[in-house]
Computed example of a mutant assay.
Amino acid sequence: MIGRSRRDAGQAFPIYVVMVAGLLFLVFAFFAVGKAAALRNGAQGAADAAALAAANEMRRNYEKGFLASLPEDLLSQYLQRHPTIGCIAAEGLASANQADFVDCRETLGGRRDRVTVDVEGRKTVDSSVLPGSENTRAKAKATAEVEFLCDWTSVDLNDDSIRDVFYFTCEDGFLEIRPSSPPPWDQVSKILYDVHLVDN
């Protein structure tokens, strides 16, 4: 009887070892998956920040071209075709969020210009249960849009008193701009243009 108990215990021990090893593997696997998800979220946050920074830089650079494009016929042409310089701001924001800048693309869209940024996280998953994870880094992409929010308001251009004043109806209210003495662009541009993330 005692001999059988010892044999049963001896046979059960390898099973316990396998079960414990399996549980440990699952724990490490769940940890690796959780770490990978966290790194992916971090990379996405870096991509979002970089895309928004690039879009805001684009909006800042619109000032001279926008003011020079008035009146309406030239403004319409300007909205369809103008230089966009925003990607230079994306690299710094990606780095500040522990990611490496990979690529940036700007696309003109008339009243909606877009910038898409690709980044790669700096930390690796590096899990012993996931082969190759020591070189695996999270990648993410984000797109931000600069949307023109206003419509031209017609005025009598024969009236000399308003010859140099241009009027717009915007989502946030009425706006007038005098190119010879324009209001601060950092204030006006936020009424003229909205910056936001969009789905890729």
Rank of each mutant, 00 (worst) to 15 (best):
I88V: 15
L108S: 12
Q187D: 15
E176H: 08
H196I: 04
G3D: 12
K141Y: 09
G109Q: 09
R40T: 09
N135L: 12
A99Y: 03
S189P: 11
T143L: 09
C150Q: 04
A49N: 05
P71H: 10
F166K: 04
P71F: 10
F31C: 02
L157W: 11
R59H: 05
L197V: 13
T153I: 13
A43G: 06
V17W: 04
Y62P: 06
L192F: 00
R111S: 15
A138P: 08
A138T: 07
A96P: 04
E171V: 14
I88G: 12
K190C: 00
P183I: 03
P184Q: 01
F101A: 06
P83E: 15
A51R: 02
Y78I: 12
D113P: 02
P71C: 13
H196L: 08
A142Y: 04
L23D: 00
C87G: 05
A12N: 03
G121K: 00
N135S: 14
A38G: 10
R122T: 12
D100F: 07
T107G: 00
D103R: 15
K139S: 05
G109R: 10
G42K: 09
V17R: 01
F28T: 04
I15M: 13
E145H: 08
E106M: 10
E147G: 00
A138I: 01
P184I: 03
A142N: 03
Q11N: 11
L130C: 01
D113A: 08
R59F: 03
A140M: 05
C150G: 11
A47H: 01
P83T: 14
A55V: 02
V195M: 06
L23A: 14
S180R: 15
I85H: 11
F174M: 06
W152V: 07
F31G: 06
A32S: 13
R60P: 02
V115F: 00
C150N: 11
E171G: 11
T124L: 02
G109T: 01
D164M: 09
V115M: 01
A55G: 07
V18S: 11
I2N: 05
G173C: 12
V119H: 05
E176C: 05
